[in-house]
Design a protein around this nucleic acid. Sequence first.
DNA 1: CATGAATGAGGATTCATTCAT
DNA 2: TATGAATGAATCCTCATTCAT
Lengths: 193, 193, 193, 193
Amino acid sequence: MGSTAQPRRGGDTRQRIQDVALELFAEQGYEKTSLREIAEHLDVTKAALYYHFKTKEDIVISLFQDLARPVDELIAWGESQPQTLEVKKEVLRRYSDSLAAAAPLFRFMQENQATMRDLSVGETFKSRMLRLLELLQQPEGTMSDRVRCFTAIFTMHAGMLALRDVEGDPEEKQEAILEVATDLMVRSQGVTE
Amino acid sequence: MGSTAQPRRGGDTRQRIQDVALELFAEQGYEKTSLREIAEHLDVTKAALYYHFKTKEDIVISLFQDLARPVDELIAWGESQPQTLEVKKEVLRRYSDSLAAAAPLFRFMQENQATMRDLSVGETFKSRMLRLLELLQQPEGTMSDRVRCFTAIFTMHAGMLALRDVEGDPEEKQEAILEVATDLMVRSQGVTE
Amino acid sequence: MGSTAQPRRGGDTRQRIQDVALELFAEQGYEKTSLREIAEHLDVTKAALYYHFKTKEDIVISLFQDLARPVDELIAWGESQPQTLEVKKEVLRRYSDSLAAAAPLFRFMQENQATMRDLSVGETFKSRMLRLLELLQQPEGTMSDRVRCFTAIFTMHAGMLALRDVEGDPEEKQEAILEVATDLMVRSQGVTE
Amino acid sequence: MGSTAQPRRGGDTRQRIQDVALELFAEQGYEKTSLREIAEHLDVTKAALYYHFKTKEDIVISLFQDLARPVDELIAWGESQPQTLEVKKEVLRRYSDSLAAAAPLFRFMQENQATMRDLSVGETFKSRMLRLLELLQQPEGTMSDRVRCFTAIFTMHAGMLALRDVEGDPEEKQEAILEVATDLMVRSQGVTE
DNA sequence: CATGAATGAGGATTCATTCAT
DNA sequence: TATGAATGAATCCTCATTCAT
């Protein structure tokens, strides 16, 4: 179903597999997407997929490697900065952008957590979240503060998918989400001035 | 957990299927839990499951029917009340309780959204969420207000599972979550008053 | 392809699977015999095989369990007897019978040793051989004696298959083999007498 | 085993394929050794193997051609000699050496007989064995004599592998085996002399 | 109320092989 | 000499489901 019937020559097959896989994984879930299906969408044989990826899980892993880098860099940056409010705001701002850029992947993650859990890459992801949290939290915060902080991050994740089928302009939504998240984070920093 | 090891004779098989199924679905996900597995946990044959439920999906549906009722009642109650702040707070309070009571089911839902989506019961659930949102929202709120409101609900869902592997006393956590959620909702009601 | 087209009713399927499997394994080797092939020979689905055996290897294991028992009993008997020459001769005699009774299985083993090696049941089998050897050997025999003894056993194994496509009446062959084996064993018992 | 780690440039690839293939075939069996595996061990692509050998079976055939020659020469020599006892002993002695020299190949054959059977080269091998037997046998021997003779040869084959995981110095073992084999053969020559 | 036996469809994965470059 | 990319056929195995008993 490409524009022409002949196999596109060029070294792009690996990339195309990733694209289609992400699309289908996000749409139908990991388990319900078979390699046959992916192959058919690409007009290739299942075996061709195995030339490029050792296993189905490997495809997911590769997806994460490509798209988690921005977050890793963000965390690294955050950890190298002083823990000021301004830095924390910037972290959220950048995180918002990362999420927007990798929207389908994050949607996939959010909607397939049960699967993620035993997908090896899951642990990796969870630990990233924890480091992000650390970046934002006050060490001696109350439980509510911690919840606020964690909600700040989670709001963005949830926003990615739950607001999809709500009204409004995407950019506006993203901004609103960031605003709420920032607000939550700020309020979690304790009564201090 | 019968007093002796022998299979309980009596009409509780259906219930036991639901219990085990919920446990396994929540733990491993819907697709990765096979009827064989459920049957084995119960020391019954797969065929026995089919005596009690027409299909695998039917088990999930029955789970929802039992556990969604409280939420339905909550929504009905909310819709019958005036839209005061106090009522809205009460809605959140009760919703928090419902979630706590049905924790495994909600965890299951949260972690298997991709699956839920084509499980017929999915739509049902989304619409419930929307009615709940409606209950809390100001009609003419800004986008940020809407996000806040929606985050209030989502915080509770997320808290269910994400705080599981964080520190602290469960009850304290639940309260903190409710507090943050209420706060978010209150702040979404506009500058008024 | 049974005499009639309808599925034979009766609890014999498991047995029939074993029969056909053994036949095909012996004829073509383990790896080259697919479950599809076995199923086709039985006019059943592959899935039916999995109802009766958890895995392909399980079929082999079951084959061994049924047929190794005589050998186990023989070893047990031998170990309970005094180590006289007469007993040792009897051991060989009985072993010869066991082999004749389980000829196809032993042929299978002999011809698929590479496969046996990682078939879990292989170890089991090797250890049986060693105990059998122990039964026949003089503790302080020379190396040649040990080789003779071991050859006595091996002759029988080899005879099973190698003499198949050589001339002569089966019974006569079996007897000749037993004679040679016994002779070898006797000569291995040291200069004594 | 090149002095450095870099791939040996030079025309020895074909040889290296044979070496690695034989090693893996002997270790794991023919069917369980994939061309991918062989290629990986050599740090080459599968396609490279196909430059040197038309097919997987071709590799085995080439292995046999290289290593069966000594046996062929031995047989030819034997057939050109008078059928004296001394010649027969010499045949066994030389055969023992051939086996020792080509141990892995013979181990491979012994352990993969089922596979050999439809590997085209199988027949060839069996016929060699028969000619060898002819060389040693008395035409009018009894069945026991024939068995003895055949056991003489088989002892050596079996010794190759079965004594591997028994005790003792390899050379000593080989000698013991040859001694027993010779003894068997001698005893098969009839009461005469 | 439940089992024993089976099915059909489909899953991921692996293999020997090919061919243009 | 070799590789990169791909294929087609087959593999073992699992699943939800059915039905006579």
